[in-house]
C-alpha cells in the first residue's frame, strides 16, 4: 500500500495524503478496522513535517473516514453501507459542481463527462 506525494505540486501535501488514503479505502486495499501508521512514522518516511500528517488525519476524522483511538492510533472506519447522509451528499455535490463546470467550459461534452466518471468508478471498484 504505497502512498505517493508530490512536494512541488499546487495541491497541499496534507490534501494529497488524505486523497490517497481515501482512494486506498475506496479500492478496498484499506479496510474498516485497519490502522494507519503513527503520525511520526509516516512523516519521517515522507520527510515531511509531523503537522502535515496530523492535519491530514484530522481532515479524515472530520469527514468521518477514520477515527482516533487512544493508544491504537488512527483507525479506518468501515465503508458506509446504509447510504450517504444528506449532509455529506450536499458537500460532495458542492465539490463536484465547479469541476464539472470547468470541464464544460473547457469543451468536454456531457457524454464524455459521464464516460470519464464511469471509467473512474470501474478503476476504483476494480470491475
Amino acid at each position: 500500500m504505497f502512498i505517493q506525494i508530490e512536494p512541488t505540486s499546487d495541491i497541499p501535501i496534507y490534501t494529497q495524503l488524505a486523497n490517497q488514503i481515501i482512494e486506498l479505502i475506496a479500492r478496498g486495499q484499506l479496510k474498516g478496522g485497519d490502522a494507519l501508521p503513527s503520525v511520526r512514522a509516516l512523516a519521517s518516511d515522507l520527510s515531511v513535517n509531523m503537522h502535515t500528517v496530523n492535519k491530514s488525519y484530522h481532515e479524515l476524522v472530520h469527514k468521518g473516514i477514520i477515527r482516533i483511538v487512544p493508544k491504537s492510533g488512527a483507525i479506518i472506519n468501515p465503508i458506509v453501507q446504509e447510504g450517504i447522509t444528506n449532509e455529506n451528499c450536499h458537500r460532495i455535490i458542492e465539490q463536484l459542481k465547479p469541476i464539472i463546470a470547468e470541464a464544460l467550459v473547457l469543451g468536454m461534452s456531457p457524454e464524455e463527462i459521464g464516460q470519464h466518471a464511469s471509467s473512474i468508478l470501474v478503476d476504483l471498484k476494480g470491475e
Binding site: I5, E6, T8, L30, P37, L42
Partner: peptide
Amino acid sequence: KQVRIADL
C-alpha cells in the same frame, strides 16, 4: 515530476 513515496 519529483515524488516521495511511503508504504503504510
